[in-house]
């Protein structure tokens, strides 16, 4: 079967479309309700987990280390659920990190701008022009957040298979278009696309385990082989590689660990100064 990843510029509107798609297809809806579970598994308070998905956390609030761990925990939970197949995922930024999985249909829903302005005006109790400015500011912050955290601009349409604007199209019509599109054969899961998803799930699990000790690791997986890239000083290179191998080797599903280290020039410069 397939998975549907939906993103939107307005949370409630996107969620309503995701809900309709889930109902029409009989797929499970995976949304921010899982953040409670993520919080208890990662031992990071739920408000902080939620904050990591919002633009403000890119500049103020909690440390980058906690934010990265919170985001990795969300990714781990999302990937594990996506492996179950037949899932509509919304509000968990999955469109930014579920990459190269051919049975994932990626959709962006754009809410009518005037509607968003009017909602913002009511919510913030400000005039229409002020609300318009606030909305522009919020959009810019959201774009910065996706670039800062995942290195991808979530407003770029080439990140998606389709972008649907709700200026003329009603949400239920948009849901019908998505349901129709996901029925195409190319969105059916195949052995290879499931393997790609499994590899990503394993790499995030390994990364999460390593993050408790090392924050600067990049992990990729291919079957049961895991490649970890990290920075290190020359004198601690061997010790760090052994420690990573030991930690990663304990993760279920890992049979071989390869560690690639590059010289940590900043630490080296700081120590020699």
């Amino acid at each position: 079967m397939s998975i549907i990843l939906i993103s939107s510029d307005h949370y409630e509107t996107g969620r309503s479309v995701a809900q309709q798609v889930a109902e029409a297809t009989g797929y499970a809806l995976l949304d921010r309700k899982i953040l409670g579970e993520v919080a208890s598994a990662s031992q990071i308070p739920e408000p902080k987990i939620l904050k990591s998905l919002e633009p403000s956390s890119a500049t103020i609030g909690f440390s980058a280390k906690v934010r990265n761990r919170a985001l990795a925990s969300i990714q781990g939970a999302v990937m594990a659920r996506l492996l179950d197949d037949k899932v509509v995922c919304y509000g968990l930024a999955a469109h930014l990190y579920v990459l190269g999985v051919s049975h994932a249909l990626k959709i962006r829903i754009l809410c009518n701008e005037e509607k968003r302005v009017s909602l913002m005006a009511t919510e913030r109790k400000v005039g229409i022009e002020k609300a318009r400015k606030l909305l522009k500011k919020q959009e810019a912050a959201q774009k910065r957040w996706s670039l800062d955290v995942f290195g991808r601009d979530e407003t770029n349409p080439s990140l998606y298979d389709m972008v649907i604007s709700l200026s003329q199209i009603e949400p239920d019509e948009a849901a019908k278009v998505i349901v129709e599109t996901v029925s195409y054969r190319k969105f059916q899961s195949m052995t290879y696309s499931i393997k790609c998803l499994r590899d990503r799930e394993l790499s995030i699990r390994v990364k999460l385990a390593l993050m408790e000790k090392y924050n600067d690791v990049d992990v990729t997986a291919d079957g049961a082989t895991v490649v970890v890239r990290t920075k290190s000083l020359k004198r601690e290179k061997r010790k760090k590689a052994e420690s990573i191998r030991a930690l990663a080797g304990q993760i279920p599903g890992v049979s071989y660990v390869e560690v690639h280290t590059v010289k940590d020039i900043f630490r080296q410069a700081a120590e020699s100064a």
């Binding site: 051919s102 962006r108 754009l110 701008e113 407003t155 349409p157 080439s158 998606y160 298979d161 389709m162 972008v163 649907i164 604007s165 200026s167 003329q168 199209i169 599109t181 195409y184 190319k186």
Partner: peptide, 19 residues
Amino acid sequence: RDSSLYDLVVHVHKLTVDD
């Protein structure tokens, strides 16, 4: 490049011309 100028943006890559 602003997607909100359009009702639909279709990315021809995974989706084919016929799709």
